[in-house]
Simulated scan of single mutants.
Amino acid sequence: MRAGDRFVPGPAHREIVFLTGSGISARTGLGTFRGPDGLWALEPETEAAMQASCLPDSLPQLWQVWGRMARIARDHGPTPGHRAIARLGAPVITQNIDGLHQAAGSAVVSELHGSALRAACLGDDCRWTLAVEPGEGPRAEDHGVPGRCPRCGAPTRPDVVLFDEQLPSADLGLAMELAQRADLFVVVGTSGVVFPAAQLAPMAASHGATTVLIDIAPPVGSRTLFDHVLAVDAHEVLPDWERRIHQVGGTSFLDPFPG
């Protein structure tokens, strides 16, 4: 970040697109995945279970982990950052699986890594899905869905993308379309090292967009990758952007959030 950089979107920015990662949801208690305090470091056995090659043996652990995350997201709800993005009316590309952008009111959301709030069929050719009712436990039934697909009889699973699985083509296609049409591309709370999401900001820049990273602890080297790097709390700066753009003073009554 350049000294004194206090970037704020201006009238020239008519197509704002956000790419979000686990940092925007951390205040809910969901935490992050990478780094010394991330889930993969604290629970290496969980990371191992996220390999697609471990299916179906890993299903109990997957239901336990992703069911817990879905429950935390449901119980805590969106953060001020999620709500500000929704009030801006900006489309979102997210690496998160918590459904909090939709809960905040965002209408266009590309879920690159799927959703812990849905169950899917493990069968290769079956497209059955069902919303979950997050609970506790290692069985699909603990989360309000059948353990076997009612269409084909295959086991059911959380509808999240595991290691070595392809991203959902429709969501990836939407993400690339949004990146190419953005005139302001804002990355919030993600390390930006996971492909193909890591290519989206450069793609937006190549199509003329201003690129901004908002992260309270920006990754090393990020200052060379973005036009602006804001080492600030997204839950403070995004509501401020929304108030400035909509010319609203004070703190929005939609912002309250415990903790």
Rank of each mutant, 00 (worst) to 15 (best):
P202F: 02
E165N: 03
F226R: 05
G144C: 02
T20D: 07
E165C: 03
V65Q: 09
L55M: 13
V232L: 15
F226W: 12
A217I: 03
A182H: 02
G81R: 10
T94D: 04
G135N: 03
V188R: 01
G259R: 15
F226A: 00
A198M: 06
F163E: 07
R148N: 02
E242V: 11
F18Y: 11
L225G: 04
W40E: 07
V161A: 07
G221S: 10
P239C: 06
L112T: 01
G89D: 09
V237L: 11
A209Q: 04
G99I: 04
D124Y: 01
V232Q: 14
G89W: 09
G31I: 10
S115H: 03
L167V: 08
A182V: 07
V193Y: 06
G10M: 07
D215F: 08
L130A: 15
Q199A: 14
A198N: 13
G153E: 06
G147V: 00
I72N: 07
A26C: 11
T190S: 15
A48M: 10
M69D: 02
E111L: 09
G144K: 07
R14G: 12
E141S: 14
G221E: 09
S106R: 00
V193Q: 11
A116C: 13
S25M: 05
R83S: 00
P11A: 15
S191I: 03
F7V: 04
V65C: 06
D159E: 13
A120Q: 10
Q180L: 04
D159H: 12
G99Y: 01
W40N: 10
Q180G: 14
